[in-house]
Simulated scan of single mutants.
Amino acid sequence: MKIRKFRVGWVVFSLSAAAVLVYHQVNAAEPSFDCTAVADGSIEAMICQDQALAALDNKLSEVYHQAADKATNEYPPTLKAEQRGWVKGRNECWKADDKKSCVASEYQWRIAELQARYGLIRPTASVTYLCTDQPGSEVIATYYPTDPPTLIAERGDSVSLMYLQESASGTKYVGRNESLWEHQGEAKVTWGYGAPELDCKVKP
Rank of each mutant, 00 (worst) to 15 (best):
L198I: 02
D50M: 08
E186R: 07
A104L: 12
P123G: 02
W181L: 10
A125R: 13
K188M: 06
R155V: 09
G192M: 01
I111N: 04
G119K: 02
K2F: 08
L79S: 06
T72D: 14
S42W: 04
I152V: 15
E186A: 05
G156Y: 11
W94L: 04
T142Q: 15
R155H: 15
P31Y: 05
L79G: 01
R7P: 03
Q134T: 08
P135E: 13
P196F: 07
T128E: 11
W191Q: 10
E92K: 10
V202N: 03
E92F: 10
V127S: 08
T190D: 14
N27Q: 06
L180S: 15
Y163A: 02
Q83P: 14
C35K: 01
V11E: 10
S14C: 15
E166P: 10
S105N: 11
V139G: 03
L151C: 03
H65L: 14
R155I: 10
Y144L: 13
P145C: 04
A39I: 08
R176T: 04
L151F: 13
E92L: 05
S167C: 09
W191K: 09
V63T: 07
S14V: 09
F13I: 12
A29R: 04
H65Q: 05
Y144E: 08
R7F: 13
V26K: 12
R7M: 04
E44H: 10
R4N: 01
K99E: 06
P77L: 06
